[in-house]
Design a protein around this nucleic acid. Structure first.
Length: 260
DNA sequence: AACACTTACAACCGCGACTTC
DNA sequence: GGAAGTCGCGGTTGTAAGTGT
């Protein structure tokens, strides 16, 4: 099947966004919400393709985006998640509130790979993590396959989905990290985040389908999972466990539930 | 000061997945 | 069931800014 181009290229602007374009896009989305990217540029009076608008919004204009240096703890988390997930930047970004997949990807390629190589570490993932196969919109039943490959209707499972946390480490190596981003154990103290998190409080409980959850692979007895969560060298895990053992257990149980 | 080279990151592109009709 | 439309992800590119000579 052929695929239509995302937009007619003629007459559309490319390259860096001007502040006027940014404000047009921001104002439009503030009024009408995200989505309908294809028709958005026309409605917002932008000479850009929808894809470009979406990217600009998601990676730069969206409220709550944290810009600036990554702290050591974020480095640790990215490295650890990358070793586990590979180049699944959107998944990794999902565990780093305020960071975008694009930013993490760039940071990985420009900083972390170099840093790891200098430290004599091979920055390759420990394992090829399966790519997402399918997702389903919330609020729908959908078809799935059972162990015999038969198509079955699956009720979506409502599970506890913990809000991504920013770890507050007692033994943080970077004081600026604490000063700049941390004061609580659950999220950044950045005011933008607080606003966003408050607005999304209800999203702490979201719907998943077990087979959609890539982290499900973590629980299939792989050694690296244990290493990931319990490794001696893991600053992240130390922080995590020291903060809230129940929460970790909760997440673990959640994954088990999804796989059952 | 001028040029070459490197770095950092915003933005683009292609494609697969998903939805709608 | 399949075609067409849309979205989102990950790889790649372009270029401004920084650094070295």
């Amino acid at each position: 099947m052929g695929r239509a181009p995302c937009c007619a290229k003629e007459g559309l602007r490319k390259g860096p966004w001007s502040s006027l374009e940014d404000s047009l896009l921001t104002n439009y989305i503030n009024q009408h919400g995200e989505g309908h990217w294809r028709s958005l540029p026309l409605n917002a009076g932008l000479l850009r393709c929808g894809k470009s608008c979406r990217l600009r919004w998601v990676n730069y204009l969206r409220p709550g985006i944290k810009r600036g240096n990554f702290c050591e703890d974020e480095d640790d988390l990215i490295v650890r998640l990358h070793s586990l997930l590979g180049n699944r930047w959107s998944l990794i970004a999902g565990r780093l509130p305020g960071r975008t997949d694009n930013e993490i990807k760039n940071y990985w390629n420009t900083h972390l790979v170099k840093k790891l190589k200098n430290a004599g570490i091979d920055p390759k993932p420990l394992k090829n993590f399966p790519r997402r196969k399918k997702t389903h919109k919330e609020g729908k039943k959908c078809k799935s396959q059972n162990s015999k490959g038969q198509s079955v209707q699956v009720e979506k499972i409502k599970v506890f989905a913990p809000k991504p946390i920013r770890i507050s480490c007692v033994n943080s190596r970077d004081n600026s990290f604490e000063n700049d981003t941390l004061s609580t154990s659950t999220c950044s103290s950045n005011s933008n985040f607080e606003e966003v998190d408050a607005g999304k409080e209800k999203e702490n409980e979201v719907n998943f389908l077990a087979r959609d959850l890539d982290f499900g692979e973590l629980l299939k007895g792989d050694e690296f999972c244990d290493e990931f969560l319990m490794g001696e060298s893991c600053n992240f895990s130390k922080c995590l466990f020291s903060l809230d053992d129940n929460m970790v257990e909760k997440v673990y149980q959640e994954y088990l539930l999804l796989l059952s």
